[in-house]
Structures are given as structure tokens and as C-alpha cells.
Nucleic acid binder design. Structure first.
Length: 315
RNA sequence: GCCGGGAUGGUGGAGCGGUCAAUCACACCUGACUGUAAAUCAGGCGCCUUAGGCUACGUAGGUUCGAAUCCUGCUCCCGGCA
């Protein structure tokens, strides 16, 4: 096999990405790396839908990242990486994920296997195929603190002062988005102070991306099924425990099921936010180039999908 | 039966004579998104093809140059007394 191949299974929530990923791994001798910004947190299992079989526990590998050893789960004899990278009260972001993914990809390849990225966090997936030098520019906590309460207008003015061109490039939505403006200021300041982002050139990679989808109503009802399954599996107690253990404003706990927990009608409010999330994901994926789309509500999607991958894999 | 309060757009809820197609929030639609991305943000959101026009604030009338806003009848809802 060509050692630069990389298979991606992406798409919105509740499309069965993981189970397809497992089948692909079985057929093509692969291992899975999850690309999910909420499943990276240890202990956030049921609500985020890790779907771990009962009694399966994580194994520690000899691969290290940021001073800790990466873990994997073995599901249906397939190694699944990328879960439980940090605790819910630790920061996590694209840059970290990208580092882990690179370590894992090269390790999986070194063992003669096919890395399969499975997940719905579009930005994480994009970081693997598009060169994004700025994501490695570190956060500046003092700067963030000093800008925390500024209005979008003030932030935009400040950014224009630092880096006029960058401010001009922002679209009309991001110009009013304090979080993005602060990040832009952070990057500009880093560069002005002589910082250079150490971006390595991308290794050439032969990527095949499957994107699972279905008509929106189909997906919404799948989401609702999954939510009731998760509630039956103990989601309530998981959420209750986490919210009793950690401050509720952690970004990890902004995931749908936890954030909705304070609402009187938890289940329907959870469902609503998953539906909204679904739409945002569809908006994102629709724009991504070179995806092999599969409509999981059709009969023959699975066969079509396997033959396309086989074709790519043997080339 | 009597007394009091209320009926506003998909929902909650402002407005209490003109600048009201109606603050705001939620829902919904469309979209953006290269270090929080299950996050964050933007635009739209009565009807008509626009300047503009039309129909709207329970319902029927009335007062007024002008009413969602004032008055009267009716219908329904809520609270108190019977």
C-alpha cells in the first residue's frame, strides 16, 4: 500500500460515522482516529456518544504527547484513538488535535496500517489537509484578559491599528465576532513582536474523504433516537456528575447535552440544540471540496461507498 | 351572579393616541468561520416583485386629522367574592 494514504469519514452528527469507520478499518487494515472536539474529554462518554461497548477500557500506548501517553480503545478488534486526550477542565483546541493526529498518523503508518479519521469537527479535519500556519501561534492570556470586555467595534479599531490588511480581510460577520477579533489581534501582535510560527510543510497525502448525509428530517429523527438511547444509558447521571464536579462555563461542557441540562425540559432542549448543530455542520460540509457524499437513507449507499474506497485504495 | 385584571406576530413578552409591521428574547430560515468549532458570529424573519403598496395588535362599533394605544357592546381567559 502507498504509505501516504489517508481515509476520512466525516459528516454531520448521527450519521453512523464510527460504525462505518470500523467496517472500513476491518476491510482495509486500518485504525481509527476520532476528530471530535468533545469526545477528546475523558469522562464525557455517554452524552457525547462515544458508544463504548460495555466493559471496554482504554489501553495506554507508548506514544507521548505533551508529557502524557496517548490511549486507545479497542472496539471490534480495531484500535480507536483520539478519545480522552485531556480532562474536561483542560484547554483543548485545533492545534492540539492536529499535533496528536500527526503523531498518530505516522505511528499507524509505521505499523503498515491505514489511518482512518472519523469525526464531525470540520475545523479539525481541515487542519489536516489545508496548511494553517497561524493555528500554531500560541494564546496570550494577558492580552485576552485585557480585551475580554471590549466591544466588537473597539476590537476592530484596535486590530486595524495593528494590522490594517488583516482587519480589511475579515468578513462582515467576523468583524462583529469578539472571539475572532481577539484571536486576530493575538496573531497580529505575535507577528509584530517578531514571532514566527513554526509551520512545517505538509507531508504529501493521498486523502479520500467520505461525507455521510441524509435528508434533514431523517437526520433529525436519528438524532432524537440517539438522545433517548443515551438517556437510557445513563446520560442524566453523567451530566449531573460532571456539572457537580466542574464549573459549568468550561468550554468542554458547552456541548449540547450538558449545556441543556439546566433547562426544565432537558431532553427537548438537548434535541433542539443538536438539531441546530446539525444545520451548522451541513452548512460547513456543503462547502468543503472533494467529498464523496453518501446518503445513508438510500439502500445502496454502503456498496457504493465501499467500491469507491476500494478503487481509491488499490490505486 | 358580582368585582377586578387581561386578550399583541410561531412562542414569551414590550408598546398604552402619531416617528408601529410593531423594542427585546426564544424558535425558525440563510450564511460565515485558519488556536474555545457540539464553540462563536452575521443577515433574514406579516403579505406583495422594489421606491412603494396591502392586511394586521380577540371581535363589532364609536371618538379623533390620526388608535395596538381612548370609549362602548360582545366573546374568551385569569384572580377574588358569592
Amino acid at each position: 500500500m502507498n504509505m501516504s494514504k489517508l481515509l476520512v469519514v466525516c459528516g454531520p452528527t448521527a450519521t453512523g460515522k464510527t460504525s462505518l469507520g470500523l467496517k472500513m478499518a476491518q476491510k482495509f487494515n486500518g485504525e481509527i482516529i476520532s476528530a471530535d472536539s468533545r469526545q477528546v474529554y475523558a469522562g464525557m462518554d455517554i452524552v457525547t456518544g462515544k458508544d463504548l461497548p460495555p466493559a471496554v477500557t482504554s489501553q495506554v500506548s507508548n506514544l507521548s504527547w505533551q508529557g502524557r501517553f496517548l490511549k486507545y480503545y479497542e472496539i471490534e478488534k480495531i484500535k480507536v484513538w483520539g478519545y480522552d486526550l485531556v480532562n474536561p477542565d483542560q484547554d483543548f483546541n485545533v492545534s492540539f488535535w492536529n499535533e496528536c493526529a500527526k503523531i498518530l498518523i505516522s505511528d499507524i503508518r509505521s505499523r503498515g496500517k491505514l489511518p482512518i479519521i472519523v469525526g464531525g469537527t470540520g475545523l479539525y479535519l481541515k487542519s489536516l489537509t489545508v496548511s494553517m500556519p497561524d493555528i500554531d501561534i500560541p494564546q496570550n492570556p494577558d492580552l485576552r484578559l485585557s480585551l475580554k470586555d471590549k466591544s466588537a467595534d473597539d476590537l476592530l479599531d484596535y486590530l486595524s491599528l495593528l494590522d490594517f490588511a488583516r482587519a480589511q480581510q475579515l468578513n462582515s460577520s467576523d468583524r462583529k465576532n469578539p472571539r475572532r477579533l481577539i484571536r486576530a489581534i493575538e496573531i497580529s501582535q505575535f507577528k509584530l513582536s517578531g514571532g514566527v510560527s513554526a509551520s512545517q510543510p505538509k507531508a504529501p497525502t493521498d486523502v479520500f474523504s467520505i461525507c455521510l448525509t441524509a435528508p434533514i428530517q431523517f437526520l433529525k429523527s436519528r438524532i432524537d433516537q440517539k438522545i433517548s438511547q443515551r438517556i437510557a444509558a445513563g446520560a442524566f447521571f453523567e451530566a449531573q456528575n460532571l456539572l457537580a464536579t466542574f464549573p459549568p462555563d468550561l468550554s468542554s461542557l458547552s456541548a449540547c447535552g450538558y449545556r441543556a441540562f439546566c433547562n426544565p425540559d432537558w431532553e427537548s432542549s438537548w434535541s433542539r440544540s443538536e438539531h441546530q448543530y446539525l444545520k451548522r455542520q451541513l452548512t460547513w460540509f456543503k462547502k468543503q471540496p472533494n467529498l464523496f457524499w453518501c446518503d445513508i437513507s438510500t439502500d445502496s449507499w454502503s456498496d457504493l461507498c465501499f467500491s469507491a474506497v476500494t478503487n481509491w485504495y488499490n490505486n
